[in-house]
Design a protein around this nucleic acid. Structure first.
Lengths: 245, 245
DNA sequence: CGGGTCTTTGAAGATAGTCAATTTAGGTGG
DNA sequence: CCACCTAAATTGACTATCTTCAAAGACCCG
């Protein structure tokens, strides 16, 4: 991985101030000065190939990472080897927040396709937060959002049936893709059935069967990793039986 | 709830600097000056009766709360009314971190016995964090710890069988009680079987049956809410089959 | 002491898991 | 470019686990 960065002539492409994702990553309303401080701290251009680990559980924590392009999964494992996928991460999303607690990453982060990330050295971000209150607040909000998100997953894992979990999963993916300007109802799954299963607390066979069931109902089209949502309202009805739309 | 506080003569009992829980709540190594600043911001003496809500999902978020005495549960609910208990909280533990994201609490927090909490107005804590770096770092660590904790729960909910969940639950309770100077192997459950079930993604009958099974095996003693752990190593073996001790 | 809640326990049923066989896809190298 | 090979996915049959439904018993608070 060559270091293309040049302190005197930073490429325009390689700066937060110029990044198309900054609305996703950063608090709105930073001044030019503040943005320049950020550009100075954040390191861009880390490239990973499919299957590469960005970090592993137990690695020394120094930085957070934001997905610039590509797709990641994070997962935790028990002593006896059982793996739980804790999340899938696409552009603009942050990974590594679990590492702050003990200065050691608490999960594995793996690229599911060739990807690029920005590195946010946490110590320097923390200092910067003291100078830029809105940045500090932004980080608290990001971490809080992660907690809220995890609570939603616990609800899913603790209370929902296989069909409900799959529907929630597909709708969540759809929504996040749409928010990034991709088609909401026609996408390629970046992960295997097994990884979906691990995320949803199901076995891969159950994932496959449930997708087939949705397909037979005409609610979605499944062509291997290519998914089309054909009846979004039916899927939504699965999750919250009352609220029709 | 009467306000016993007096700015000129703050009771010694009612101050972080004098609190027996400060090692649990606060970063170590605060100077007297810094401690005084904290004492000025943190409001103590909120009392709740069993069954009272500290906050409800959707309430405007202004403060975090630390348990001083008593016992709480937090829970989230889906639109159609399914409840997932997301945690049980005892002295020194913080609640409300999920509220930062959207300035609205994301869960309900309810006292399971008569309790007392300290209120940490978040805005003022945030400012104080900018002046006391170790305090800022402490808050990041607290939030990160919550994320790590939630990941562990996802592993439990996604991968474990009923017996493993119960064993993990009992051992976790035991450990936290021991850390606070209570008996590790002899305690009273503050929550109902249904609440345990909701937390562990099980039905109350399954919780009851599994406790009975442990009892029959001689691993624990169950007398309603009074639990004694008789064979901790057996319970540990349930969770991580490899690691004997 | 009494009503209501919580708990225990049993029996039957449903959901998802396990095991296994087959098909398909995608990557590699001739 | 094609053939092969491995990994992933689908599907079926069977089983285990947990849930549901039901009834009886125990406790606690007023």
């Amino acid at each position: 991985m060559t270091n293309k960065r040049n302190a005197l002539l930073p490429s325009l492409r390689e700066a937060c101030s110029n990044c198309s994702l900054k609305e996703l990553c950063l608090p709105i309303g930073l001044s030019d000065t503040e943005m320049a401080l950020l550009d100075d701290v954040i390191r861009q251009g880390h490239k990973l190939k499919r299957g590469d680990y960005l970090f592993r559980s137990g690695d020394a924590f120094k930085s957070l990472f934001a997905v610039r392009t590509g797709f990641f999964k994070t997962s935790v494992s028990s002593q006896d080897g059982r793996e739980q996928v804790t999340g899938f991460h696409m552009s603009g999303e942050l990974m590594g927040l679990d590492g702050i607690a003990d200065s050691v990453y608490g999960c594995d982060a793996m690229a599911l396709e060739d990807s690029e990330v920005c590195e946010l050295p946490f110590g320097r971000m923390e200092s910067l937060g003291r100078e830029i209150p809105s940045l500090q607040h932004h980080f608290f909000r990001l971490m809080s959002r992660e907690i809220v998100h995890d609570q939603g997953l616990m609800l899913l894992l603790g209370n929902m049936k296989a069909e409900e979990r799959l529907a929630a999963f597909l709708l969540n993916l759809s929504q996040r893709l749409a928010y990034r300007g991709f088609a909401a109802n026609d996408f390629i799954l970046r992960m295997s059935r097994e990884q979906i299963g691990s995320f949803l607390g199901l076995k891969l066979e159950t994932v496959s069967r449930t997708l087939s069931k949705f397909h037979q109902q005409g609610w979605i089209s499944v062509d291997h990793k290519h998914i089309q949502l054909l009846a979004v309202s039916e899927l939504k009805a699965l999750i919250s039986p009352c609220a029709h739309s």
